[in-house]
Design a protein around this nucleic acid. Structure first.
Length: 590
RNA sequence: GGACCUGUGGUGCAGCUCGGAGUGCACGCCGGCCUGUCAAGCCGGAGGUCGCGGGUUCAAAUCCCGUCAGGUCCGCCA
């Protein structure tokens, strides 16, 4: 049986509400759903809009029926064309109506706490408390169905590429690094704990050692960190790993899946995924998650102002962005921008209004007098600015300077994340380490199993902070979707990394013993990736928060307003788990 | 741990700056009228701990302090 046949209406109904058309006129149909609205005209006539997951159809019923909002009813009757002049062009079923001969109330409903039609949107706490009502809305029905389509597209792509889906444990073992973990007490071994996995990282590497070659999983992950619009305690990622591959191979595999997703959801061919190095992303966009949907790229002005008298521009990096039409910004707005730049860590912000006409542009600014005519011309030339534009310049060390301008660029120009087009981007060659810890040891930027860039292996010990890694992020419209790397499969390189990180052999053994153990029995070269399905689905659904694509999400304080979690456990249950609660903290100032 | 925003009948808002009776709007709800509506219409009605606690004041939704909840962000998220 085809999917279409099996998905057809059956049971109590012959058709779905939203699918009835003029071609069905004359048939006796039965439709089931919720009362979306009723329009009563006395005891002999009432119009009832019946809603199911496919849409709404108008039923014409006797006025005597007590059909209130959200009652669940079954209506049977002949489908007919609406009388001339009463067609409703606003809905797909607007040409027809069900002339009800039988109305069956399957379930009565109290008036809902807020209206399902979305005309006025209730605040999030109310929606979350009555999530089962909220999920009836067109918006949430659409969002969760988009998400299901995302999952299906991912599976199609993975399947096509020969990946095998393997489930890994939810009750895992503590790994004392990375995100804070959720702990699960053991009943059979009181005093011992499982943890919920922050990702199936180690498990999937073990599957490579086991010879599965290409693994994937649409995996639930849990991290006990603070929540955000794009972060929940539990989230879903496409997790994959492949053996005997280069990073380019991984990029292709992952790109195939996200492009399949974009294609499936939009029905259009998405722009190809572009690739740039971490360094390039920093120079051009001032961030490691560039939003490629708009210009305003950072411009290097070091050459233009080389040898300048202006002290503020005598710096390692002098960078600028150009705001089209920004010259009309008033003094107050410019001062606010300067404040913003300072808060972001810049020493200051120089603004230059581009004035004048064709061929004789000039710069207008409180600091213009410190710049020579030649320098001003060079700045205009380098930024490509025209009359009426505003040039914003920050000078200082390269990385912080770029980051400040990158943020200003977003403040001034970024569209909502879900706005099309969808511009996927690989950011590659991340540094292997980011800074040093209190003891002076480098800190792993990704995780300690990340393979260094082969060209940089030689200076691993001499100049670790300059070493690039074979790790990479996937970015969509300024959101980090996920990250991955080629892993270290050779014991000698792993030993050098652990030594640099200040992890002793004993410590490594106790932390990652079973992974290192597995590597002694024949580990293939391998690498992989993971990206957030919630984030991808949110963008595809046109939402700014992943809560809108999660059926039952938690609030920022980690509460489920509907289910009432978290809450206390009865003493008997604690005792069974071998747990005793610490006394509550003293009240502040008491 | 920190910053900012929000909290007013069931829902969404206005009122808060400049204190003066729970004052208003829209939707919903309840009752009545109504045979072609589609955000139906008309008439009538009910519904409030102004999140909570304290303070200032003759008087607090309004000003001050604290607190709780929700949101955005920083920290955090190898």
């Amino acid at each position: 049986m085809s999917r279409e046949e099996t998905a057809r209406a059956r049971g109590l109904r012959t058709d779905y509400c939203g699918e009835l058309r003029s071609k069905d006129v004359g048939r006796t149909v039965s439709v089931c759903g919720w009362v979306a609205r009723r329009r009563e005209h006395g005891e002999h006539l009432a119009f009832v809009d019946l809603r199911d997951h496919t849409g709404i159809v108008q039923c014409v019923v006797d006025g005597g029926h007590d059909l209130r909002a959200e009652h669940v009813v079954r209506v049977t009757g002949e489908l007919r064309l609406r009388p001339e002049g009463t067609v409703n062009d606003a809905i797909p079923t607007g040409e027809v109506e069900v002339g009800a001969s039988e109305v069956e109330i399957l379930s009565v409903a109290e008036p809902p706490p807020f209206s399902v039609d979305g005309r006025v949107e209730a605040e999030e706490p109310v929606r979350l408390r009555y999530r089962y009502v909220d999920l009836r809305s067109e918006r949430m029905q659409h969002n969760l169905r988009v998400r299901a389509e995302v999952n299906a597209a991912i599976r199609r792509s993975m399947d096509r590429q020969g990946f095998v889906e393997v489930e890994t444990p939810l009750l895992w073992t503590p790994t004392p690094e990375g995100a804070r973990e959720f702990a699960i007490p053991s009943r059979l071994q009181p005093g011992s704990f499982y943890v919920l996995p922050q990702s199936p990282q180690i498990a999937k590497q073990l599957l490579m050692v086991s010879g599965f070659d290409r693994y994937y999983q649409i995996a639930r992950c849990m991290r006990d960190e603070d929540l955000r619009a794009d972060r929940q305690f539990e989230f879903t990622q496409l997790d994959l790993e492949a053996s005997f591959v280069s990073q380019e191979d991984v990029w292709e595999m992952v790109s195939d899946s996200v492009l399949e997703v974009a294609r499936a959801v939009t029905g259009e061919e998405p722009p190809p995924v572009v690739t740039m190095t971490w360094n390039e992303a920093l120079d051009r966009f001032g961030t490691d998650k560039p939003d490629l949907r708009f210009g305003m790229e950072l411009v290097a002005l070091e050459e233009a102002v080389a040898g300048t008298e202006f002290k503020a521009f005598q710096a390692e990096a002098v960078r600028a962005i150009c705001l089209e039409g920004g010259a009309e910004l008033g003094r107050g707005r410019l001062d606010a921008l300067t404040d913003r730049a300072r808060k972001l860590g810049a020493a200051g912000l120089v603004w230059l209004r581009v004035v004048g006409g064709e061929g004789q542009l000039d710069l207008e600014s409180p600091v213009a007098k410190f710049l020579s005519t030649k320098e001003k011309a060079a700045v205009i030339e380098a930024t490509g600015a025209g009359a009426g534009d505003l040039v914003l310049v920050v000078a200082g060390e390269r990385a912080p300077t770029c980051r400040v301008l990158g943020q200003l660029r977003l403040d001034l120009g970024q569209p909502p994340v879900s706005e099309r087009p969808y511009r996927f981007c690989w950011v590659t060659e991340f540094p292997l380490f980011e800074g040093v810890d209190e003891e002076g040891n480098p800190v792993a930027a990704h995780h300690p199993f990340t393979m260094p860039h082969p060209e940089d292996l030689g200076r691993l010990e001499a100049d670790p902070l300059s070493v690039r890694s074979q790790s990479y992020d996937l970015v969509l419209n300024g959101w980090e979707l996920g990250s991955g790397s080629i892993r270290i499969h050779r014991a000698d390189i792993q030993r050098r990394i652990f030594a640099l990180l200040g992890i002793s052999e004993e410590e490594a053994e106790s932390r990652f013993g079973f992974l290192l153990g597995a590597f002694r029995y024949g580990a293939p070269p391998h690498g992989g990736f993971a990206y957030g399905v919630d984030r991808l689905a949110a963008i595809m659904a046109g939402e700014e928060s992943i809560r809108e694509v999660i059926a039952f999400p938690k609030t920022q304080s980690g509460a489920d307003l509907m289910a009432g979690s978290p809450r206390s456990l009865p003493a008997s249950q604690l005792q069974e788990l071998g747990l005793r609660l610490a006394p509550p903290k003293e009240a502040k100032g008491a």
